[in-house]
Design a binder for these strands. Sequence first.
DNA 1: CGGAAGATCCACT
DNA 2: GTGGATCTTCCGA
Length: 204
Amino acid sequence: MEAGRPLPPTFYRRRADAVAPDLLGRYLVRDLPAGRLAVKIVETEAYLGSSDPASHAWKGRRTARNEALYLPGGSVYVFFVYGMHHCFNVVTGPGGEGEAVLIRAGEPVIGDELMRRARGLRRAPRPGDVAGGPAKLCQALGIDLTLNGMRIGAGRLRITEGEAVTAEEIARGPRVGVAYAGEAAAWPLRFALRGHPHVSRPRL
DNA sequence: CGGAAGATCCACT
DNA sequence: GTGGATCTTCCGA
């Protein structure tokens, strides 16, 4: 039902650009009082830490807002942006590097009805409406700043083995919304299941 | 201390 | 395709 065991801590103790493609096909499972929710992860982006101009950890920048980025791999980094949206990241590496993977999109697997309601959708949604974007995914799964700094596996949030994905199924391209980051904007650190309808825009 | 911009989404033209 | 919503953080004066 929830597709296998939770991923072990060692899974997250790698570079973000290794973890990001490996998270595709995994299940992100959320247990709320109203019921269980889960999505299959179909799109991710890697942020490489202090050496990455697009990262919140660029040049080792450290503020109250991004403090959780420096926790050990397997921790949760949630930030609030544009005055109204949350974005969910998984910290990677041993810790202290500021590396993380942004979970950009998921395909509803369990609790579709509850997630539609959380998103304010009444009618049958089109692909991507429920969790086809980083802020949509957070709204669908009830992810907010109260989870910031927790371990994956705590806070009724976990990631399980999910479904196997082959290298041929993975598309790769530049990250979204980081035009300010100079040449780093072109780094191919966005990963998605090739042609999957729930991937966010622009399509890879 | 003011202003600008952001790892976004939605409604409208 | 464009702009508005809405608020935290950063940087320059």
